[in-house]
Amino acid sequence: MKTALILRQSRTILAKDLRREWRTREILTTTVAFSVLLMAVFTFAFYRSGDATAGVFPGILWISIVFSGTLAIGRSFQHETASGCLRALALIPGSQVSLYIGKLAANLIFMLLFELALIPLLLLAFSVNLGPTWALHLGSVLIGTLGFATLGTLVSAMLVKNDLREVLLPVLLYPLLIPLLIAGVKISAALLAGQGWPQIEGWLKAMIAMDLAYGVLCVLLFRFVLAAVE
């Protein structure tokens, strides 16, 4: 019964965020533009012909995802406080967990959408061919993005009423993301070096475990975060 309520409310919050984004294009426009700029800067700074590219590409890929994702996630709770809607939501029974899940789903969709633009551009700019392991590449990016959105949604909510939120979001978020990023970069580097599933299995399992741990922790902590900021 409670699960059905949470799912229904989460879907309602997700639909509202998607409808709002469709009308304002506030998050996607800025994030995609920022991704393209990042790609251009990295291309000029790091492009080398031949195999040298493979050495820097994993780092560039994950840094681009993290920087652009920070921009997207940092905006996710702003419109909830602009006219006090966070307080109205806090008064609705069961809505605390639903708000977190709905926001997480919206953030995940926004991140996957800008990654759809970012990743092909990076591959083109650095002349990288993912080869037969492309599915493993995309799988690791998907798992990494889920972990990023899971943690980022909670930290973004924590900072929603803080005047220094733009500065504090990366300061608080990035240290928590380091294990996930290390795993992501290791997987991408291994796959680009021609290695396969046996070499990345451990790292991928570690990423999934981190996603699960972040998820449980964030769902448990969100109601306290909301109580503190409402």
């Binding site: 709002r20 304002t24 419109h79 006219s83 006090g84 109205a88």
Partner: peptide, 8 residues
């Protein structure tokens, strides 16, 4: 505060 969304 109005507690409603301007974009909706």
């Amino acid at each position: 505060q109005t507690l409603v969304y301007d974009e909706l």
